[in-house]
């Protein structure tokens, strides 16, 4: 009798993803659903999706979800979590959402130590709107608004917001991972799981930045795009733990 060793997580709805071939978003959706299943928190989780390609994340994740304006997901999540600290609240945001239009909300939530789990998907472009330059776009990278490539002196430098957030006193756990190979995907899942646990233990602000490919807007095949993340993007945004101030909960310091 064959035993099934890999199946669809229960917290993932049966809908077919609307994402392009090779898109990292749907891998991350699946990992989130797996973590929610494994932690047994589906019935007390609330998600806040972003504007952008993942705006329809609620078509896939079978948990309560509430929309936020572009960039404001963490502010909305703050309102939810402060009113219902017993819920597990996460945001799901792209680089434009979190590191451009939502920079203020992100920095201040981290600084206040809001007890939230933030999933930050960095693919270096605005995907939904057609591949414009993002704050994370690499120097020289061609986008639809940097047709000759991003020039730092004209268009700004790539912004490593996660590193800035690690400086905020209220942030507890920040890790950068990728979803470009099975090895990295396993690491990403572990990081997401930890970011949820940090919140569930009431420790504070946890964020996982996930380097992800956007083959369509990069005009590469999915395999080329994944290679590019590992060989090029990850040199600008090195993978690994940027901050881990977590502690084992004790009676004195829960």
């Amino acid at each position: 009798m064959a035993q099934q060793v890999f199946k669809r997580p229960e917290s993932l709805k049966d809908n077919v993803f609307h994402y392009c071939p090779g898109c990292g978003h749907s891998i991350i959706h699946r990992l989130l659903a797996e973590v929610i299943d494994e932690l047994g928190i589906r019935e007390k989780t609330v998600g806040v999706p972003p504007a952008g390609c993942a705006v329809l994340a609620y078509n896939y994740l079978d948990v309560d979800m509430g929309e936020a304006p572009h960039g404001r997901a963490i502010a909305v999540a703050t309102g939810i979590k402060r009113c219902r600290p017993d819920l597990v609240v996460f945001t799901y945001q792209g680089d434009g959402d979190l590191a451009a239009i939502g920079t203020a909300e992100t920095v201040h939530a981290a600084n206040r130590g809001e007890c939230l789990t933030v999933i930050f998907v960095n693919n270096g472009v605005y995907g939904m709107t057609g591949g414009q330059m993002a704050p994370t776009t690499l120097p020289g990278q061609k986008t639809t608004t940097t047709p000759g490539g991003r020039m730092a002196l004209r268009d700004g430098h790539p912004l490593d917001l996660s590193r800035m957030l690690a400086l905020a006193a209220g942030s507890v756990y920040i890790e950068r991972t990728a979803v470009t190979s099975p090895k990295h995907i396993i690491k990403t899942k572990k990081a997401i799981r930890k970011a949820f646990k940090v919140q569930m233990d009431g420790q504070g602000f946890a964020l996982v930045e996930i380097l992800s490919a956007c083959p369509t807007n990069w005009k590469e095949t999915p395999i080329e795009a994944c290679k590019r993340v590992e060989q090029v993007v990850a040199t600008q945004y090195p993978l690994g733990i940027l901050k881990d101030a977590t502690h084992e909960p004790t009676a004195d310091n829960p």
């Binding site: 035993q3 060793v5 890999f6 071939p21 898109c23 978003h25 891998i27 699946r30």
Partner: peptide, 20 residues
């Protein structure tokens, strides 16, 4: 050998893996 690597990376959760 049901290593599940294909399913792990599949962006569309289109692969189920079975071990005999």
């Amino acid at each position: 050998n049901a290593c599940t690597l294909c399913a792990l990376i599949c962006p569309d959760v289109a692969i189920e893996v079975f071990r005999e």
